[in-house]
Amino acid sequence: MEVKTVSFIGLGALGILFAHHLTKRLPRDNVRIIADENRIKKYQSEGVYCNGKRCNFNYMSPEDECEPADLLIFSVKINGLREAIHSVKNQVGENTIILSALNGITSEAIIGETYGMDNILYCVAQGMDAVKVGNKLTYHNMGMLVFGDKKPGNISEKTKIVADFFEKTGLPYHVDTNMSKRLWGKFMLNVGVNQTVAVYKSNYGEIQKDGPARDMMIAAMKEVIAISKKEGVYLTEEDLQYWLDVLGTLSPNGKPSMAQDVEARRYSEVELFAGTVLEYGKKHGIATPVNQELYDRILEIESEY
Rank of each mutant, 00 (worst) to 15 (best):
L278I: 12
Y234V: 13
E83A: 15
D149M: 04
S303W: 05
F57M: 12
D261A: 15
G52P: 04
A109T: 15
E237V: 15
S228Y: 10
K53P: 06
M128K: 01
T169D: 09
G254F: 02
S7K: 00
C50T: 07
E238D: 14
Y267C: 06
G15F: 01
K160G: 06
A198C: 14
Q44N: 06
K229G: 14
A274R: 02
I33P: 00
G12A: 13
V6A: 00
V3Y: 03
Y280L: 10
M188E: 09
V31E: 02
N135A: 15
I9F: 02
I155R: 01
V197D: 04
G205V: 12
V175C: 07
A259K: 03
F74R: 00
Y49Q: 12
T5I: 01
G248P: 07
T249H: 05
L17R: 00
D210Y: 06
F74C: 03
D70C: 05
A198T: 12
G10C: 10
K186H: 14
E2Y: 12
C50Y: 06
D129C: 04
V290D: 00
M60P: 00
L137G: 00
A213T: 08
E37H: 08
M144Q: 05
A274I: 04
G127C: 03
F147S: 02
I218M: 11
P62T: 03
N190F: 07
V277Q: 13
S303P: 05
S61G: 09
E65Q: 15
I78P: 01
A109S: 14
H20T: 12
I301E: 08
I286R: 07
N253R: 12
V224D: 05
V124Q: 05
A220L: 06
M221D: 03
H284L: 08
A35D: 04
L11C: 09
S61F: 05
A84V: 03
E157T: 07
V233C: 05
T106S: 12
K41I: 06
F147R: 00
G211I: 09
T249R: 04
I207G: 03
T23D: 09
G185T: 12
G116S: 15
I85L: 08
N190E: 11
E37T: 08
Y200G: 07
N51M: 07
I16C: 07
M142I: 15
H20R: 12
K222A: 08
K222H: 13
V48S: 12
K41C: 06
F187P: 02
G254P: 02
A264C: 12
N190H: 13
H174C: 10
E279D: 14
K186V: 10
H21S: 06
Q208R: 10
G93I: 04
A130N: 04
N141E: 11
C66R: 10
K89P: 01
G281E: 08
Q195R: 09
N194D: 14
Y49E: 11
I298N: 03
E157N: 08
S156C: 01
V262R: 10
E83G: 10
S251A: 09
L14R: 03
Q208I: 06
T5Q: 00
